[in-house]
Design a protein around this nucleic acid. Structure first.
Lengths: 250, 250
DNA sequence: GCCATATGGTGTACCTTGTACACGAAGCAG
DNA sequence: CTGCTTCGTGTACAAGGTACACCATATGGC
């Protein structure tokens, strides 16, 4: 039978939660339930994922997704956001439930079912320490992931699949870019995520024909060549069109 | 605090599982975890969902999705299939994880997190008792659902959304039809699920151009007009094409 | 100031795909 | 034999996707 105490909460930095005075007794065994977050960000040439280095066993020193136990009266989404905030200081990101992983032995401590989420972050907003130093949180490019704890590699794969499948039919790519972006940046995003080259003129024609990105009067700065015009995504308009049955597609 | 024993297993027809000799004691409260299945079937003019009538509190006599508690060493998918088999005699259907619902008070017995699945069944294979009589399992058309237990109405809505979103980009519609079907049946399927009329000639042109439905030498029987030719879905070919990057789309 | 370098920004011709639309053929029932 | 019902088929036009090249504009070095 599985261990009865898989959830040493100190594992997850919840030292401020005092252990309850009473124990919790049930007629049948119950799993622990956790949330894990795949935070994806976009670099110049890569999709990157945010990982934290575990400080405790199991998988001490291994890299893992930010996540932790769902509290007794907490919504699952809220638990995911809380863990993100506590472990990585990330807030206000696009967050969506991904899949629930419950293979009985996925956690050596016992039965732990995890509800995985994925988040899309503007990488520039979260310049956590570079992954190459001794810091315990970092962005890793997908093709150079370190050894990962639990089944987290599988969870990341599923997040990427979801991103790839969804980016063409929902305007979620904008969540990976700063509020003002150039069309070239946007095109790079699609090229990186979809892993294929796109034609510049056709891409611009298509994007502009949707009428959802608005030209601003700002220009790119800090480049040593002609500066690109910046655009913004018109979320309000998108939501209006959505209600009328509009379908986003790239 | 929530009730400590939400999972009276007798609720779910597991009387054959003897209560364990020992109690289960944990340092922190744990939720119960269940699976629920939205089984969708296709009638002449409707999508229907399979419901069971609850025999015990809470929501005694109310209609609900088939489902129940995940066992200690059981995969989530396996739990969903087991519950389907136990409660509705349905086996060998297309089954896919849908979403996990965990609002703290969604079950009056305490914290119960449910991993929802949706299944697509060939309605003709499962002529359970009609929903209008006193039987405790029945197919209900989506627009005439009875009052539902827990948050099961919300779960059903999400299943429909998923079906609608997916049917155009994955060949899952075939799971709702018998192995041999007419193109008119297939068209009806899409019309019902997508809730819009399709042009017969254009639909046939499109479907046949995919090269995934194969003409058989069988004809429809039992109709009082010219019989339609029957086709079958070429799953093998689809899987081959998938690996080559083919994208199904209607 | 001028040149080299790098990216920004633009239009047209063709091809493929989607859409609108109507009628004779086949089979059964009476 | 007639009437009814569904089957099964093709064409013309519109829309959208694709392939493709060059001048403009900014910076930095000389």
């Amino acid at each position: 039978m599985a261990a009865e105490k898989p959830d040493k909460r100190s594992d997850k930095g919840e030292v401020w939660t005092p252990p309850p005075p009473g124990r919790h007794v049930y007629d049948y065994p119950r799993p622990s339930v956790t949330v894990d977050c795949v935070v994806l960000g976009l670099d110049a040439d890569d999709v990157k994922v945010l990982l934290i280095q575990r400080g405790v066993d199991p998988f001490k020193h291994a890299w893992a997704l930010p996540g932790g136990f769902v509290r007794d009266h907490e919504e699952l989404d809220a638990a995911a956001r809380r863990e993100l905030r506590e472990e990585t200081n990330i807030e206000d990101v696009y967050l969506e439930q991904l899949y629930t992983f419950g293979t009985p032995d996925r956690d050596p401590r016992g039965r732990v079912i995890t509800v995985a989420y994925y988040a899309l972050a503007k990488l520039s907003d979260y310049r956590v320490k570079a992954a190459t130093d001794a810091e315990n949180v970092g962005w890793y490019p997908l093709d150079r992931l370190p050894a990962l704890a639990f089944d987290h590699a599988e969870i990341i794969n599923r997040a990427i699949e979801r991103l790839r499948g969804k980016v063409r039919y929902a305007p979620i790519g904008f969540e990976l870019l700063p509020p003002r972006f150039s069309l070239t940046q946007l095109q790079r995003l699609y090229e990186i995520v979809l892993e294929r080259a796109l034609d510049k003129r056709n891409f611009r024609k298509k994007i502009l024909s949707l009428g959802l990105v608005i030209e601003t009067d700002e220009l790119e700065t800090g480049v040593r060549h002609r500066a690109a015009r910046l655009y913004r995504f018109d979320k309000k308009k998108y939501e209006r069109l959505l209600k009328q049955g509009f379908e986003f597609a790239i």
